[in-house]
């Protein structure tokens, strides 16, 4: 069963019976109770969701904390493949994408996301410790919405996140 269909089914079941138990839903849909709880929690989460893609834990951690304190829901991914998977599953409102990733690099990930109808609308801000113009131009050409060079000022990054999310066409 597709993830979307699962979500739909869960919502249908709750609408039918407000007091339905997690175990019952779990039985019907076929996924563990714990996941059902998480999903229901997510349904009620109205915060804007940001996917951070970075292989450096030390960079990712403070950024996550900072964005969470700004009341964003944060999802993490440590490499390109995980990033694409999470983008499809979580449907984030924005992706912060590091360029230097093991395996599939940021540019490839960006290209992939921007050519997939499921994810093409998600705005992407490139994050990189590289500062040469070619990388920036390349990133913007394949559809990145903004580009921030590490080390960045948190305030500035937050402002850029807001600005990109406000843009018409973006959610």
């Amino acid at each position: 069963m597709d993830k979307k269909d699962i979500d739909k089914k869960i919502i249908e079941l709750i609408q039918q019976d407000e007091n339905i138990s997690y175990s019952k839903i779990s039985q019907i849909v076929g996924i563990p109770e714990k996941d059902i709880e998480e999903k229901i929690k997510n349904f009620s989460d109205i915060r804007e969701k940001i996917l951070i893609v970075d292989d450096e834990m030390s960079t990712l951690m403070p950024l996550k904390r900072s964005l969470e304190s700004e009341d964003y829901a944060v999802v993490e991914a440590y490499d390109g493949h995980e990033a694409i998977k999470k983008a499809n599953e979580e449907k984030p409102d924005l992706i912060l994408l590091d360029l230097m990733l093991p395996g599939m690099d940021g540019i490839e990930v960006c290209q992939h996301l921007k050519t997939d109808t499921q994810t093409e609308k998600i705005p992407i801000i490139m994050l990189t410790a590289k500062d040469n113009i070619d990388d920036k131009v390349k990133g913007l050409q394949i559809g990145a919405d903004d580009y921030v060079t590490k080390p960045f000022v948190l305030k500035e990054l937050k402002a850029r996140i807001k600005s990109v999310m406000r843009r018409p066409g973006n959610i």
Binding site: P62, P151, L154
Partner: peptide, 24 residues
């Protein structure tokens, strides 16, 4: 480019962490 990348990565972590501490 690698050197700059490698030098900036910890710098970036330090910068973000300290700015967090400062603002929060």
């Amino acid at each position: 480019s690698l050197v700059s990348h490698e030098l900036r990565t910890p710098l970036s972590a330090i910068r973000t962490s300290s700015e967090f501490l400062e603002s929060e």
